[in-house]
């Protein structure tokens, strides 16, 4: 009956003690008894039905996760750490490009319009600092900790969706208009169109249509990236300290995540062309590989601990 114990442990990590006592304990108790009373030939069916009802109960109770209020000191700490990490990342991304801008008078424009684009690149990696703040905060119940992380994930997706979908395209277009001084408005490339405009564009199957699909894929994947990095850091912090697989300090962990992302970001485009994958799927390949690497690390760590 390990599966029922695992299910209950899962619920205990995500929900407050009262919800666990009133909803999940009775559900699991009835499931266990039904399993014990069933003939061996029916036990698999009992487990399938139990898992299904457990999943439905989890979905129905999910709003309770978001009602768990984190202490103000914790939310302030998360906001502070994320702001610092995002600001540092943004500065690091902008400075080398700003130095390359030839004319002194356009440098100010460049910095102003490049900031939103740099923020959306830096923000997902700030999740490492945020997770460390959540996990390091003492005196908070596990369900509140996880609820805070879940809320942070939702907010991060919404932030990325809004920034990458509307703010960055507007800034890109403003930059072009400010610097090229054409007689008419410069043509708008996919990166300068809002997500709504991309979704409603009626381009025939041309290179531009492919570029639009690629841009949409990029935006969707980047919106999910913060949650993936949150999950990876969370799992890494679960591992014991002082071993080869242990989580590094937040700064080193962030840099390692950035390098891993950039390394995996280059190759998938080639994979997309060589394996004839759908246009725009390369970004999802990158995310898949990042998730796979995280899973392999945890699996190897667990295997190493069992062997030890």
């Amino acid at each position: 009956m390990a599966i029922t114990s695992r299910a209950l442990a899962f619920a205990s990590r995500w929900f407050d003690p009262q919800t666990v006592a009133r909803v999940f304990n009775p559900l699991v108790a009835d499931w266990q008894r039904e399993w014990a009373d069933a003939p061996k030939s029916r036990r698999l069916i009992v487990h399938i039905r139990g898992i299904l009802s457990f999943c439905i109960a989890i979905i129905v109770c999910t709003p309770a996760i978001f009602h768990a209020r984190a202490p103000k000191a914790l939310t302030d700490l998360i906001a502070r750490r994320m702001a610092i990490a995002t600001a540092l990342g943004t500065a690091v991304l902008i400075v080398p490009f700003a130095r390359e801008v030839q004319l002194e008078e356009t440098r100010g424009f460049f910095i102003l319009f490049a900031v939103p684009g740099a923020i959306v690149m830096a923000f997902p990696f700030a999740m490492v600092s945020a997770v460390d703040a959540i996990r390091g905060f003492i005196g908070v119940e596990p369900h509140v900790t996880r609820g805070t992380a879940a809320k942070l994930g939702v907010v991060a997706i919404m932030f990325m969706f809004f920034m990458h979908g509307w703010v960055v395209p507007a800034a890109n277009q403003a930059w072009r208009e400010a610097t090229f001084h054409p007689p008419s408005e410069p043509a708008r490339a996919p990166r300068e169109l809002s997500t709504f405009e991309l979704l409603t564009s009626r381009e025939p199957a041309t290179t531009k249509a492919n570029n639009i699909r690629r841009e949409l894929g990029n935006r969707a994947a980047l919106s999910v990236l913060p949650v993936l990095l949150l999950w990876r850091r969370w799992r890494a912090l679960d591992l014991p300290k002082g071993r080869w697989f242990s989580a590094q300090p937040a700064a080193i962990g962030t840099i390692a995540m950035i390098f891993a992302f950039l390394a995996l970001r280059i190759s998938p485009r080639i994979v997309e062309m060589k394996w004839h994958l759908p246009v725009g799927s390369s970004f999802w390949v990158t995310l898949g590989l990042l998730a796979l690497l995280g899973t392999i690390r945890v699996t190897l760590a667990e295997w190493s601990m069992v062997r030890a």
Partner: peptide, 15 residues
Amino acid sequence: LKRGTVYVTLGRMQE
């Protein structure tokens, strides 16, 4: 009554 939701309903009714 469904298995997946009955325990949630029972919990609310207790409340």
